[in-house]
Nucleic acid binder design. Structure first.
Length: 351
DNA sequence: AACGCGTGGTC
DNA sequence: TGACCAAGCGT
């Protein structure tokens, strides 16, 4: 059978066997995959780059080598360990899922069962079912959407094109090695069939690719226009106590919403106009620092003024030794603000 | 169905 | 250099 007649899946799997990436969560050839590592890596990789995840995955699995170990850990330790990775609902759901799995004595072994776990949606349930358990599941992430939209020259803009893309992916998914097929599609999307400047001359599927034949594969997939990001303003309060080791007042953010459940510096409301001292955690004389902190979220940009003061705190929170702030597990926004206050910021994010 | 939800890299 | 984007999920 020549290359032209062999299936897309066959050619892709041959390419994967020769050129697939060596990633820390992938089982070595001939070894059985560990569902815990597959699940953890898939959750970490949701909307997060391989480069960002790799070191965090290694640290995490060294500290908590099994789902039972993770299930036994305190919430606070898990949330702090997730700090900096973003999308903190993933960590909240990770805790719940780990305890459900530990209580059940193991992971569900089917796509439908996995879909019941918190934090596993259509993509992750299919990926874990295929990669960890060998089920023939149809795995569609942003890489697969791009590859498939180009292979079949699907012109419909995303997200309206999703049903057609899923159906096309189903048609080319093999009955065996569905997990390798999914990982191969993602490797292809990450290394050759990239958003900009795809390297079509190296692509094992070039002969089957309609977008390549038509001459401008980078044009696909078409995407709906995005809304402009508003800018909001707020104040971060850096409160130190007067006595004892140098300590700063930290609060825990509400479980739902932005940065939910994470340790944080107190903030006032985030509003459209300029900041004020509303909602300060102490009625003291605050000193406003000259610089501001800029931070971008998915759906808005934030400019934060920094108020510094000394005194007794009001409300719930804890005094945290400044020397040990790295262990508090602050989300990047607050870590950035702390650096600015402590004058450790050399890269110009103070404006 | 559209929106809320983080962060860092890329060009 | 700011806009775009990444192994999406929950509501």
């Amino acid at each position: 059978m020549n290359a032209k007649r062999s299936s897309i899946a066959d050619r892709l799997l041959d390419w994967y066997d020769a050129h697939g990436r060596d990633l820390p969560w992938r089982a070595k050839r001939g070894e059985a995959p560990d569902p815990y590592r597959v699940w953890l890596s898939e959750v970490m990789l949701q909307q997060t780059t391989v480069a960002a995840v790799a070191p965090r995955f290694r640290e995490w699995t060294e500290r908590w080598p099994s789902v039972d170990a993770l299930a036994a850990a305190p919430d606070e330790a898990i949330m702090a360990a997730w700090a900096g990775l973003g999308y903190y609902a993933r960590a909240r759901n990770l805790v719940k899922a780990a305890r459900a799995v530990a209580a059940a004595g193991g992971f569900p072994r089917t796509e439908a069962g996995l879909l019941e776990l918190p934090g596993l949606g259509a993509y992750t349930a299919a990926a874990v079912a295929a990669i960890a358990f060998g089920e023939r599941a149809v795995v569609v992430d942003a890489n697969v959407e791009r590859v498939v939209a180009r292979l079949f020259a699907i012109q419909t803009p995303l997200p309206a094109a999703r049903p057609a893309i899923r159906a096309a992916t189903d048609r080319i998914t093999p009955d065996t090695r569905a997990g390798d097929f999914a990982q191969a599609m993602m490797d292809l999307g990450a290394t050759l069939c990239t958003v900009r400047k795809p390297r079509c001359l190296l692509c094992p599927l070039r002969e089957s690719c309609t977008a390549y034949a038509e001459g401008d594969p980078a044009r696909l997939p078409v995407k709906a226009a995005k809304k402009a990001k508003p800018r909001r303003h707020g104040t971060i309060f850096w409160l130190e106590r007067r006595e004892g080791a140098r300590s700063v007042w930290l609060v825990r953010r509400p479980d739902k919403g932005l940065l939910g459940g994470m340790r944080a510096l107190p903030t006032g409301p985030w509003v459209d106009a300029s900041p004020a001292l509303a909602a300060a955690p102490a009625a003291i004389n605050w000193r406003m620092l000259g610089g501001q902190v800029e931070h971008g979220f998915t759906h808005f940009n934030l400019t934060l003024a920094l108020a510094v003061g000394r005194g007794e705190a009001q409300g719930e929170g804890e005094w945290w030794p400044v020397a040990d702030l790295a262990a508090a597990g602050l989300p990047t926004l607050f870590a950035k603000a702390a650096r600015a206050v402590l004058g450790e910021d050399e890269d110009g994010s103070m404006t």
